[in-house]
Design a protein around this nucleic acid. Structure first.
Length: 893
DNA sequence: ACGCTCACG
DNA sequence: ACGTACGTGAGCGTC
């Protein structure tokens, strides 16, 4: 195997680490008063990137104490001048960073007169020459100039654990440059953070263009006289010296004199005996718990880690079942499953208990069906703490039990507290509250290697850890929900909704498989015919599904104009093909092929593959803790994107049928819910009036932006334009986006927007306010106090920041609409139960609800659902609900 | 595993 | 100078 050398840019990573956890600065202070945010983030980096690598040699390079003493300081007096001094909270962590590095088995190194870059540059060449595969990790993109076939430069992005891997090929692809040309680029652009100029007005785009033509500075200046006159040419000539100085500053030394031979930088591995007291001194509870868990599972033998008085789960069996009666009225309850699909995946075991009475569990799920446990599970007065109440509820249904009395669902609560960085794993989410639970992956492995260990005690103790965590988590979690004013959202919306959703999923929706097969056969014939036509027109057979092969046919062989490019080649997306259609008949055929092939593979074959053969139904899972806005999503299968817009696609809906004869499918949808929410939230009287008058909102918008008198007729184009403007408003308007959507100029789009805001002034005001609020508090909220954090709102990067600003405008609208339909769902479910209707809610598709019901109940259901949805939440504008029914989902239109 | 394309609101 | 409409999931090809 190839020997490996790992080189780490200590300063840049430490700096990144500090800011990666900057928002936690005040929270992360050790008992001695030391800030530990950079230490924690740096430790995560060592854990996740370095430890698993196990390199042969490793060095963490640090800048010499004073940057001014380097050759760069001699070269340019202003070097790094503008850089603000690192805050004291950062500098105080430095000595500990070095100690941490050493304890992780890596060599620290610095050298007078050199920056970390130069140490890395030199070691990388030494290592390469000695036959090592060299891996550099840094937070600074400048280092990518060092990349070669044997040297890879990994640059952290977003924090310190996500990395972008630069090889010469990748650099070529991304910038069209060789690694060494990165220096030339820097020479032209300069570096604002190191405070040296390049050529005036030359940014990245211009630099790349120049280098594509001239390759490097020398050649550029050799041919400068032939360049046609321009402002840029003048700038290039005037700033020639600056460019050459910048080039020297940007060049990393690869031949520095280092007094440290490769033989002395061997990677030594983690020194647990020293690391444990080190972590203890910094109060790194999670790290210590992790080490203890490793030791417990026998993966670690170190004296320093004392065996803990461990939580033991008592195995339940027929002869000791009665103990559970003494558990009291508040306990954690958890069924463990293998995989994500709780409708069909195997159940591995269960645990029940609390700290006072202990934890009990078994691999034998049938024990839950015994009277002793059944009465506990189904007793609403016994309070349960769980993780993912919807999944647990379905699992209990599979066992013939009704889970009742759940007041604490840590997954739901954690999602409401912060939607970001939610991987739906207990071990990860518990960390937010400084509670350590061993990741499932450690016990079971992942992917194809997933396996339940033979040792039952190991499994049960893992479940016990989870149960214990659930007991500990309740109090701090409720405190946080209260601080966010989210108890109503949690208790009255999400928690009851979870039970409603569990019922819907468990019930499922019936599929007419014969009908789907019939549609599939028809599609296959049509696809075949189009395929033949395409091959004839192309003069060859190829894979039409391959964008790569299709691109080379259309744009290279046939020479059609390239309208849009993707990262990897030519774009062949619908909008592109539609523009090309008039120029070649093959394009229209490709569009048809694409449409039908999509229907066949995703909706006919895809759906058939997930139909449960026992009940001929599909049982989707509505993910309740995934979207950033509060909407649900639907998987396995996704029933929220069944075709509707094209007739051919819509036919798929004829295969969705009621589960019983003489029943029908009934659907009810909110009309314009997002615009109504907008009118309510902004308080804009003009917009509210339009809804109060029951106007066609798009026509009314058209009159506003085209300056037409009230009641004036609006033509189709005006209405279409206005509709696009309304969409734009909801998405967080930008002239670029609107122009793109409507195929008009940016200036025209801008005029529409300006006029719109004049006509609906409060909407404009609200947009500004919500952005300002996002900036101030870092998050935005819906009417039910659902929260979305927008960390990028402070980004320096224009794109990231703009995105966050549009999100700030869109999320309260989309999220409030989600709040409303969730409330309606709970009320509808309750009303159906109270009135003892046979009707059942089956699906939610963001602004509509789908039911099945006996024909005889349709009038009652229409009245009930419309009324409940209408009045779910009282807004300053009326809601409008439309409903339809028929023998299949297709007919409920 | 990731990018592209396309289905929905 | 930069380069975007908001929120999702699935299938396919490519690496």
């Amino acid at each position: 195997m190839t020997k490996t050398l790992l080189l780490i840019d200590g300063n840049s990573l430490a700096f990144r680490a500090f800011y990666a956890m900057y928002n936690q600065l005040d929270r992360m202070i050790s008992h001695t008063g030391l800030h530990t945010n950079a230490l924690v983030a740096f430790n995560n980096f060592l854990d996740q990137i370095v430890d698993p690598m196990q390199p042969d040699l490793a060095v963490v390079a640090w800048d010499a104490a004073s940057g001014k003493q380097t050759f760069r300081g001699d070269l340019f007096s202003g070097y790094k001048d503008g850089r603000s001094k690192a805050p004291e909270e950062f500098r105080e962590q430095f000595p500990y960073l070095r100690e941490m590095v050493a304890l992780h088995g890596l060599r620290n190194y610095e050298h007078p007169g050199l920056e970390a870059d130069d140490i890395i540059g030199t070691f990388s060449r030494l290592g390469e020459a000695a036959g090592y595969q060299v891996t550099i990790v840094t937070g600074d993109q400048d280092l990518i100039q060092l990349a070669t076939a044997n040297i890879t430069v990994n640059v952290t992005k977003k924090g310190v654990t996500e990395i972008e891997r630069f090889t010469p090929a990748y650099i070529q692809e991304k910038y069209g440059l060789t690694p060494l040309q990165i220096i030339e680029k820097k020479a032209l652009t300069g570096d604002t953070s190191d405070n040296y100029p390049g050529v005036t007005k030359v940014g990245e785009k211009t630099a790349l263009k120049l280098l594509a033509q001239y390759h490097d500075l020398d050649q550029l200046y050799a041919q400068i006289d032939e360049m046609k006159p321009s402002k840029m040419k003048e700038n290039l000539i005037n700033d020639r010296d600056a460019a050459y100085i910048a080039r020297q500053l940007a060049t990393i030394q690869t031949d520095a004199e280092l007094e440290l031979p490769l033989a002395e930088i061997e990677y030594r591995g983690i020194d647990y005996d020293q690391l444990v007291p080190f972590y203890e001194s910094l109060d790194f509870k999670q790290q210590l718990a992790k080490i203890k868990a490793l030791k417990k599972s026998g993966q670690l033998t170190s004296q320093a880690i004392l065996p803990e008085s461990e939580l033991q789960v008592v195995p339940l069996q027929a002869d000791n079942l009665r103990v559970v009666a003494m558990l009291g009225d508040e306990l954690a309850l958890h069924i463990e499953m293998a995989g994500q699909n709780y409708h069909e995946d195997e159940m591995i075991g269960f645990v029940i208990g609390n700290a006072a009475s202990g934890y009990y569990g078994s691999r034998d799920l049938t024990l839950l069906q015994t009277p002793e446990l059944k009465t506990i599970v189904e007793n609403p007065a016994i309070v349960k703490h769980v993780f993912n109440v919807k999944a647990q509820s379905v699992l209990f249904k599979r066992l013939g039990l009704i889970l009742s009395g759940v007041t604490f669902d840590f997954l739901l609560a954690a999602y409401l507290l912060d939607t970001t960085a939610n991987d739906n794993e207990l071990s990860t989410l518990a960390q937010r509250f400084d509670i350590y639970v061993q990741p499932d992956e450690d016990i079971y492995g992942k992917g194809a290697k997933f396996a339940v260990p033979d040792d039952d005690a190991l499994v049960l103790n893992h479940l016990g850890q989870k149960a214990a965590a659930l007991m500990q988590l309740a109090e701090p979690t409720f405190a946080a929900l209260t601080a966010h004013e989210q108890m109503h959202l949690y208790t009255d919306i999400e928690l009851p909704l979870a039970h409603v959703l569990a019922d819907m999923e468990y019930r499922g929706i019936t599929i007419d498989q014969a009908r789907l097969v019939e549609i599939g056969t028809d599609l296959t014939g049509r696809i075949q015919a189009i395929e033949d036509a395409i091959y004839l027109e192309a003069g060859e057979e190829f894979n039409i599904n391959s964008p790569k092969q299709l691109g080379s046919l259309l744009f290279e062989k046939m020479g059609l104009p390239v309208i849009k490019k993707t990262k990897t080649g030519y774009s062949t997306a619908v909008d592109v093909l539609e523009k090309l259609a008039p120029q070649a008949p093959i394009v229209e055929h490709i569009l048809q092929y694409r449409q039908l092939a999509k229907l066949k593979s995703t909706y006919v074959d895809g759906l058939l593959s997930v139909v449960n053969p026992k009940d001929s139904k599909v049982h989707t899972r509505f993910l309740q803790t995934l979207t950033q806005t509060g909407r649900l999503s639907s998987v396995d299968p996704n029933l929220q994107n069944i075709p509707m817009r094209s007739e051919a696609g819509r036919q798929i809906r004829t295969a969705f049928i009621p589960s019983q004869p003489d029943w029908q499918i009934f659907g009810a949808d909110y009309s314009q819910i997002e615009l109504r929410v907008l009118a309510h939230m902004t308080g804009d009287k003009n917009m509210q009036q339009a809804f109060l008058n029951g106007e066609d909102i798009h026509a009314e918008t058209a009159r506003a932006v085209f300056g037409l008198p009230s009641n004036a007729p609006v033509d189709a184009l005006q209405r279409r334009t206005a509709k696009a403007v309304n969409f734009g408003i909801v998405y967080g308007i930008s002239d670029f986006g609107l122009a793109n959507n409507l195929g008009i100029t940016r200036a025209q789009a801008k005029t529409f927007i300006t006029t719109y805001f004049q006509e609906f002034p409060k909407v404009h005001e609200w947009m500004s306010e919500i952005k300002a609020r996002a900036h101030e508090q870092g998050y935005v909220e819906t009417i039910a106090k659902r929260r979305r954090y927008l960390p990028d709102i402070h980004a320096k990067n224009f794109n990231l920041r703009s995105f966050a600003e549009r999100t700030a405008m869109n999320s309260p609208i989309q999220g409030s609409a989600a709040d409303i339909i969730k409330i309606a769902m709970i009320k509808v479910a309750n009303a159906i139960a109270e009135q003892h209707l046979q009707a059942r809610m089956l699906l939610q598709v963001h602004d509509e609800l789908i039911f099945e019901a006996p024909v005889s109940e349709i009038p009652t259901l229409t009245e009930l659902v419309t009324q409940v949805m209408d009045s779910a939440v009282a807004l300053d504008v009326p809601m409008q609900v439309e409903s339809h029914y028929g023998n299949t989902w297709y007919d409920a239109k």
